[in-house]
Design a protein around this nucleic acid. Structure first.
Lengths: 123, 123
DNA sequence: CCTAGTGTTACATTTTACTATTACACTATA
DNA sequence: TATAGTGTAATAGTAAAATGTAACACTAGG
């Protein structure tokens, strides 16, 4: 996996697992790959994987079972809330960053529409 | 100044100066605060400021004059290009991150509109 | 010429993320 | 009960960002 060298790897792994859970690649109750396997897949160290998982455990997104593995929470509400939170965070980041560049509300929307339209042309 | 501890400080300083130039707080030809003064203002080390300025110099956004100071480029075109680049980068980041969460093009736009509408209510 | 203000650079040190390695604890199963 | 698969944790080492400090080079003005 390719990482952004401006952001801690453990943090990018955390978001990677967030995404898998939200899109259903990892369904509620599913067992995650073993930490050593994840480390190999992502070409990072076990401790780095563990640091990411540790935060997911604190947030009750996954539940560890010693000797068995890590499992996605069965609580669908938690996952729904997570998805909404992540979306809102993304929107907030865009909004604040563009406002700091003196872009107005209406411009933000129209710029986004232009951007999406341009993407479609290319594809 | 408050920094995000997930992103290098020098990088955040670079973006901070980008913003000041784009919104005109620093106009073309303006002299930036002295590096030691910037270090005090931002409560960071001179070398950290210098690292941020070094990249801005490489990008021709500012021009150093030894013994005098650092000056914003007089080339308005460079600044315009920079603004467009930053906006596009922000849009791309939002787009890709939300798509990874299985959010469709139309949903992205409507979520953004909702977000802006909600912000207005609060204010 | 001297001094204050400026950019530039170098060095040692500290901090943190990450790695490599090893060990320990628990579970399931042959 | 032995073994393989799992999570958990500790230790030591490396790399990069950031700091503290100092020195050097250039400019302007008295």
């Amino acid at each position: 996996m390719k990482f952004d060298d401006k952001i801690p790897i453990y943090y990018q792994i955390k978001n990677y697992i967030y995404r898998q859970i939200i899109v259903g690649e990892l369904a509620p109750g599913d067992k995650l790959p073993a930490v050593r396997q994840l480390a190999v897949n992502l070409t990072v160290n076990v401790n780095t994987v563990q640091r990411a998982l540790g935060e997911l455990i604190s947030e009750k997104i996954i539940e560890p079972q010693r000797g068995k593995g890590n499992f996605v929470t069965e609580d669908q509400g938690t996952i729904e809330k997570l998805k909404k939170l992540l979306i809102t965070q993304q929107l907030q980041e865009l909004y604040e960053n563009l406002h700091q560049l003196n872009v107005t509300d209406t411009e933000i929307v129209s710029y986004l529409q232009d951007y999406i339209a341009k993407r479609k042309q290319v594809q």
